[in-house]
């Protein structure tokens, strides 16, 4: 959660203002489905793309646009793992540790990331705000163990000893 009252200092800037490119994209999306509700997942993706996370204010904005209640939208957001309910580091690192990758040494890769990024602990953002590292369930790239997603980019065949260079290459 953002610190309490944080948005009192930083007023929420709506993402889908009339005439904005985001609003145009949303309007086009709405033509694809017979219900407004069906545009919810794509709208939440756009919100996260614009703001880096799905904030309570963002949830209210999307809910109002799609004629849904904020509580309903929150229920949907919390079901899916890819919507960030808190701000995360600039590089969001997801290491697959499910069985096929696990037998190929994925846990060593996780530990290398925790060490090299300075995060120390899963889900904790590094003090410089650059990294958040989490374990993720099956990324669907099992033949390329260990796959790691850094934001939306997938890196295949990561080994523990290649993590240092990988991290050094990120700003």
């Amino acid at each position: 959660m953002a610190p309490e009252g944080a948005h009192a200092h930083e007023p929420y800037a709506p993402v889908f203002t009339a005439g904005s490119p985001m609003r145009a994209r949303l309007d086009e999306l709405l033509t694809r489905y017979p219900s407004k509700m069906a545009a919810l997942l794509p709208a939440l993706w756009m919100l996260q793309e614009a703001r880096g996370w799905v904030s309570p204010d963002g949830i209210e904005e999307v809910a109002a646009l799609l004629d849904l209640t904020p509580a309903y939208v929150r229920g949907v957001v919390t079901f899916y793992t890819m919507y960030h309910q808190h701000p995360v580091g600039r590089h969001f690192v997801q290491v697959c540790t499910t069985t096929p990758c696990n037998v190929c040494g994925a846990e060593d890769v996780v530990n290398a990331f925790l060490r090299e990024t300075g995060c120390g602990e899963l889900g904790v953002t590094s003090p410089d705000g650059r990294f958040t590292v989490i374990e993720v369930e099956c990324l669907g790239a099992c033949g390329f163990a260990t796959p790691v997603m850094i934001n939306e980019r997938l890196v295949e065949c990561v080994a523990a000893d290649s993590v240092k260079d990988l991290v050094a290459g990120l700003d």
Binding site: M37, L41, Y83
Partner: peptide
């Protein structure tokens, strides 16, 4: 249509719920 992270959405009826903008 892009999913948002949920193994269960590969189950056909969960997939439809997810596509409709619901929990999967």
């Amino acid at each position: 249509h892009k999913g948002a992270g949920a193994y269960i959405c590969g189950e056909e009826t969960a997939l439809m719920n997810s596509l409709e903008g619901r929990r999967g």
